[in-house]
Design a protein around this nucleic acid. Structure first.
Lengths: 159, 159
DNA sequence: TCATTGTTGATACTTGGTCTCATTTAGAGG
DNA sequence: CCTCTAAATGAGACCAAGTATCAACAATGA
């Protein structure tokens, strides 16, 4: 079993458990979509997802895909972000509070956390608002793509 | 002239200047749309904007509205945010780096800045990414709507 | 096995936004 | 004031991301 597959099965188990937790039924379409989502190694667009799902079972409707996506978002297992070129969904298994960076080259996402996470809340209060929720979306280039950009042998800042 | 109108004319002037700065032509449709945008006292959805524009001049096409919106975004005079219920555009005249809070009740937005604005960049570097850009969207309740929620006479935290 | 109720897929619809393309027009130069 | 040209326009088709509706279906508990 490869590392990727281990990650997949963990994701799958977590997602199935999320269904249980809400008293939802285990159905074949759901299972199929969950497997596809779990198999995604990176963030994906709704079209990518629906295409891959259709490849496995062309009878599964677009609506069901979106419905499940919404369930998973509700359970905090998937996050949606608005990238410059379209919607992106990201699998997200970490439990504590965190944020995501998405690689603008390959779509891979990483999580990170801030030293001082209440800074935003405080800043907002200073202008008289009561904060409801906030969204932090970060885009950048992942280590692997940075490497590829700057082939080995060529130093980082030649100057 | 009311306060609102002063704000309007400032916004209008800034926006027209943005056209000049890019060597763009002053046309009637643009002028009309700019006036409507400047007259918005709060964040607005594209449909709201197109409706108001159509009320002034039904011949102005939807495409032109979106085209101008894009121009203004490029010039940093308007920001787009993805609220839970649809896209929102916000007029944004401040020049230094800042963020926005949007009132979930009335749509009014305020700006604020963070003490330590590089915290995100540093956190992202710690996981090996090079940050490209980030988006911080904050939703909350503005002072006025808070007041309305909690009518005067009734103390804030009655215990 | 059966009944209940959650789930599904089809389909139509909405919103946000882009693309194309023929027509119009702003504004520079004479 | 006229003329020319590139920029801008509006119509309309098109696409992606969702949501709403609803009749048919199927997972589970009894």
């Amino acid at each position: 079993m490869t590392e990727g597959q281990i990650g997949e099965s963990v994701a799958l188990r977590l997602m199935e458990r999320a269904l249980d937790a809400q008293g939802l039924r285990h159905t074949l379409p759901r299972r199929t979509i969950l497997e596809v989502v779990a198999g995604m190694g990176h963030s994906f667009t709704p079209t990518e997802l629906t295409e891959q799902v259709a490849r496995r079972d062309p009878h599964i409707g677009r609506a069901s895909v979106f419905r499940l996506l919404q369930l998973l978002r509700g359970a905090g297992l998937v996050e949606r972000l608005h990238s410059p070129d379209g919607e992106l969904y990201t699998l997200c298994l970490a439990t504590e509070h965190h944020h995501h960076v998405t690689c603008t080259v390959c779509g891979r996402t990483a999580t990170f956390s801030l030293e001082d996470d209440d800074a935003v809340g405080r800043a907002v209060e200073r202008v008289g608002y009561r904060m409801d929720h906030h969204v932090l979306q970060v885009f950048g280039v992942c280590p692997a793509c940075l490497q590829r950009e700057r082939p080995p042998g060529r130093p980082e800042a030649p100057q």
